[in-house]
């Protein structure tokens, strides 16, 4: 999909991350992250394990303070609660015995932050049913969430995040643990939501490939550094090599992208300098 032509003036940005750095336990997990997301855009946040994707989301949600830099959501500084952001966390442990149906989870998205017991059954029920329809999960409505499959839970959580009508939807690795079929369905669903409801979708993943058909832009994270832009701008050997601090090749095979460590191999680089965890791009995308 070719990126829509969007007016890039800063005032219109739904999310403006400007020079954000985060230090955790004496280590710089995020270094000078800057990018902007426009309304209705589909943006990927690509990075391997430990690259800092979840940390960045937590900063945007106001759950983690940035050491430096600023974040504007809908043109305003962060507050404790940003009703215009919907969030699907990376992993939720759901006990299969938990007495919580899919529809209860979605309803909590509507008013889970309120005091007291819920009232107004009819109206709530209608809104919840409509939302479950929108994510093609109506038939799951009365099942216990804990008993649903990973992909089904993902849909329910997306409905939970969407029912409060956010303008920015953050999804932390929603494709992890999904098979290729379910992966494609969830991506198509999200792309449809972004397009039809003009909700900016910001989705993290460790592999670019599932997102390629729908992504307008991407933010690529490696070794605490980030690069952002369109796929064509970012997924290039020069850009990624600078990011990783090591020679990187980008291979295109059967319409898929493989990011592979260069000919010198890891011996030529000192990894300790950048990150304790191995973030080397041995093979970032291999599936």
């Amino acid at each position: 999909m070719s990126g829509p032509t969007l007016d890039e003036s800063a005032d219109d940005a739904i999310l403006d991350v400007d020079g954000v750095s985060v230090w955790l336990s004496g280590r710089e997990v995020l270094h000078d992250v800057r990018f902007r997301i426009m309304p209705g855009e589909f943006t990927g946040l690509i990075g391997s394990n430990g690259a800092g994707k979840t940390t960045l989301f937590r900063v945007i949600l106001g759950l983690q303070a940035a050491s430096t830099g600023s974040v504007l959501v809908g043109g305003r500084p962060l507050t404790r609660r940003n009703p215009i952001i919907g969030y699907v966390p990376q992993k939720i442990f759901l006990d299969p015995d938990m007495p919580l149906r899919a529809r209860d989870v979605v309803a909590l998205g509507l008013d889970g932050h309120r005091l007291g017991v819920p009232l107004g059954w009819g109206r709530r029920r209608k809104a919840v049913d409509a939302m479950l329809d929108a994510v093609d999960a109506r038939r799951l409505a009365d099942a216990r969430v804990g008993s649903l499959s990973g992909g089904e839970q993902q849909r329910v959580l997306i409905a939970h995040a969407l029912i409060s009508r956010p303008r920015l939807l953050l999804l932390d690795e929603p494709l992890a643990n999904l098979d290729i079929g379910a992966e494609g369905e969830v991506v198509a669903l999200l792309a449809r939501i972004a397009r039809e409801q003009r909700i900016a979708v910001f989705i993290s993943a460790h592999d670019v490939n599932p997102l390629l058909p729908v992504m307008d832009r991407l933010v690529y994270m490696a070794a605490g550094n980030t690069a952002s832009g369109t796929t064509a701008e970012v997924i290039r050997p020069e850009v990624l090599s600078a990011l990783y601090g090591q020679h990187v090749d980008v291979l295109r095979v059967h319409g898929r992208i493989l990011v592979v460590a260069g000919a010198e191999g890891p011996s030529g680089v000192t990894f300790e300098e950048t990150d304790g965890a191995a973030v080397g791009p041995d093979i970032v995308a291999l599936r």
Binding site: L61, L63, R80, R81, Y87, P89, I92, G112
Partner: peptide, 21 residues
């Protein structure tokens, strides 16, 4: 009764609840 929904949301996911304020 007063904390009912917040308790449910927190037990679903503390992160999610915190993000909702």
């Amino acid at each position: 009764a007063v904390c009912y929904r917040m308790l449910l949301l927190s037990s679903l996911s503390p992160d999610l609840a915190a993000a909702r304020g």
